[in-house]
Nucleic acid binder design. Structure first.
Length: 641
RNA sequence: GCCAAUGUAGCUCAGGGGUAGAGCACUUCCAUGGUAAGGAAGGGGUCGGUGGUUCAAUUCCACUCAUUGGCUCCA
């Protein structure tokens, strides 16, 4: 028998018989490992652990600790759920059932019956029962004719439609227990490793995402090899619920919505405004240091502006419709973007190359018509303020300016306590070039500018095709919050196209007119979205430099009100902000209320404090810190900020 | 925008063809308190909005608005 060379991820090489499977190799290493192997990556392709390997190959054994291992596990769980559904609901028709970021779903057509969360328990139980049979997931090559015959016989038109798009010879079925599905795999070895299952939600989803097609029932679930892991995950969901910025925003009186004002139009209450303005001040100061010039532009502009920019053609129908002047009938749009205004600023007089780069910054409020079903708290709204700026520079300044923006973005993200993020290079969809404006040449320049600058910064990036803006490629920052969830916040875009459409120029050293390059950037993205994410990240406990109230003075009784007032004046002078709670309530009550309001420090004053000119300090969530002077308290806050 | 669910006091929620209830919050009074809810009394609702059925609608029906979960979208 001929031998093949297997290379492991650590670089180790070993010889095995041709046709050996990943599972055999795992068994060769250790039985414990073999038990945990879910799938294998052979030459960068994820395959069944039972697939024979015929040639020299690199091999990684995938377990629950690998992303690909998990998603294979969840995909297999989707098949298990489908098997359970077929058992419980005979005649159910199946759409698709993939793994998702966390868990899996299956789209099913249950005919006249409907499935609700009340049915989850029964489905979960059935799944567990089937899982315990340790049914093996078996791969089977099938001819197209046989596959069609199988699903025709079963009466599953969705699978038949999927088959239409497949070539004969590439069709495989997977079987486990009494269940057979059209699937290209891979799958885990057997159902026995699926030990803990929770179905999470049920929702309607159109077949193939097309609203003219039938609506299927999508059942979402998640599964784990250990009950403990499921419990931890459910706890995480609970924690996320507690941190929901919509809930905390209402409780802490940060922002509100009003039916009369309109959906998706956040109203910032005094405390929310206090947080937001501190963020804005921080950014403004940082930008001034870095050579940005603040500007202010109107909230509406003539349609003409957006015809020039291309936004009208692209989004005109999907914008708030124009408002008109009563006499002349001129059409004005609520501004959905700040860049066209900023282009006008750049173009208002001839520019010399000596002036570049010009960095124009504005906290610009924009209005976009988002579909009603999309609105969500502060993270998806119809009116929001971008920490926007546009850098106009020469082509050979692009890289340096881009790197400067990267540096600024890192700086602010880290300052806010987001330690982990990924950067996504968003490029054109190569198959759909008509969605974008501008020449291929401009696009290639802009795309390579981003790719080169990222490479030079040494930052890790992922590339996403089809995610670019219509006028240029982007670098999007996906910030990971305290619960490990990813949010798209800041963005940097390199744009060769708008300067062309606005005929922007500068006079170069050669005394000729040249086209500047434009960099769009917003490190926070939008203030609304950023504050929303920040609330969830810090669970409503803002860092001291941001929090609306750093302390509250709690009086033991009304006898100490004078001392409390005096104290507040002292703390004002020391640059701290806070309030006095002199309600006729017990100290226990005042402490509880301050705890619930997440005020970082409670300063308790009674007889002993008034006499000693001191305060008893209590840290939110931690309890008593001890007595100290106002100055010592100010130092403590200073230290912690 | 599409599908589904939900909408009762500031908040969380109960109720149900004969115009409403709890806890918390709020107001007043009593208690002058020592590290997460002191006691008592009181005020507060066109039951999301509009229209319809009915002797009578908060309850049933239609439409509409909003919210939630998905789908599609996101300059």
């Amino acid at each position: 028998m001929s031998k093949i060379q297997i290379t492991f991820p650590d670089g180790r090489e070993q010889e095995y018989d041709q046709g050996i499977t990943a599972m055999d190799i795992a068994l060769d290493i250790s039985e414990g490992l073999a038990r945990n192997v879910l799938a294998a990556r052979v030459n960068d392709v994820v395959v069944d652990a039972s697939m024979p390997i015929q040639d020299d190959a690199s091999l990684a054994l995938l377990t629950w600790n690998d992303e690909d291992g998990k998603s294979t596990y969840w995909h297999s769980s989707a098949h298990l759920m489908a098997e359970a559904l077929e058992a419980l609901y005979p005649g159910v028709k199946l759409g698709i059932g993939p793994a998702i970021e966390t868990g899996f779903y299956y789209d099913v057509d249950t005919g006249d019956r409907s499935i609700s969360t009340d049915d989850f328990k029964a489905i979960e139980d059935k799944m567990l029962e089937l899982a315990r049979t340790k049914s093996v997931y078996t791969r089977k090559d099938v001819s197209k004719a046989d596959a069609i015959a199988y699903f025709q016989d079963k009466g599953d038109e969705y699978k038949l439609e999927l088959l239409e798009g497949l070539e004969d010879g590439e069709i495989t079925f997977y079987e486990q227990g009494n269940f057979t599905d059209l699937c290209k795999g891979p799958h885990i070895p057997h159902t026995g490793s699926i030990k803990a299952i929770k179905l999470l939600k049920v929702a309607g989803a159109y077949w193939r995402g097309d609203e003219s097609r039938p609506q299927l029932t999508r059942i979402y679930g998640v599964s784990f090899p250990k009950k403990k892991e499921l419990d931890a995950y459910l706890e995480l969901l609970e924690e996320a619920k507690k941190r929901d910025h919509r809930k905390l925003g209402a409780e802490l009186e940060l922002f509100m919505f009003s039916d009369k004002v309109g959906a998706g139009l956040p109203i910032w209450l005094p405390k929310g405004t206090a947080v937001r303005q501190r963020l804005e001040d921080f950014m403004k100061a940082e930008q001034l240091k870095r050579g940005y010039q603040p500007v202010i532009t109107p909230h509406i502009a003539k349609k003409e502006l957006y015809v020039t920019s291309g936004h009208y053609e692209k989004y005109g129908e999907d914008s708030f419709q124009p408002i008109q002047t009563p006499r002349e009938g001129e059409e004005f749009f609520l501004k959905p973007m700040n860049c066209p205004h900023h282009c006008e600023i750049y173009g208002h007089r001839p520019k010399s190359y000596k002036e570049l780069p010009i960095r124009i910054a504005e906290f610009g409020t924009v209005y976009r018509y988002e579909q009603s079903g999309e609105l969500h708290g502060l993270t998806r709204v119809r009116g929001f303020t971008q920490d926007d700026a546009h850098i106009f520079c020469t082509p050979d300044q692009v890289k340096e300016e881009f790197l400067n923006v990267l540096d600024l973005t890192m700086h602010v993200v880290k300052k806010l306590g987001f330690d982990s993020f990924t950067a996504q290079i968003s490029l054109r969809d190569p198959d759909n070039r008509e969605k974008y404006i501008g020449s291929d040449e401009n696009w290639e320049k802009a795309e390579s500018a981003i790719i080169d600058a990222c490479a030079e910064s040494g930052m890790e990036t992922v590339t996403a095709y089809g995610e670019a803006a219509f006028y240029g490629p982007k670098l999007d920052f996906m910030i990971r919050d305290a619960l490990g969830r990813s949010w798209q916040l800041g963005t940097i875009q390199v744009d060769y196209n708008l300067p062309e459409r606005f005929e922007l120029e500068y006079i170069g050293a050669d005394n000729e007119a040249h086209r500047p390059v434009m960099i769009h950037r917003a490190p926070f993205g939008s203030m609304e979205r950023f504050v929303g994410v920040l609330i969830e990240h810090c669970a409503g406990k803002f860092p001291l430099w941001l929090t609306p109230e750093q302390y509250t003075i709690l009086t033991i009784s009304d006898k100490y009100e004078d001392y409390a007032k005096e104290l507040k004046t002292t703390l004002d002078t020391l640059g701290l902000r806070g309030t006095i709670d002199d309600r006729a309530e017990t100290i226990g009550r005042k402490i509880r209320d301050a705890e619930v309001k997440k005020i970082p420090y409670m300063l308790i004053v009674g007889e002993s404090e008034a006499e000693a000119r001191q305060i008893s300090v209590r840290r939110q969530g931690d309890g008593d810190v001890g007595k100290m002077s106002p100055q010592e308290f100010a130092d403590l806050i200073e230290q912690e900020s």
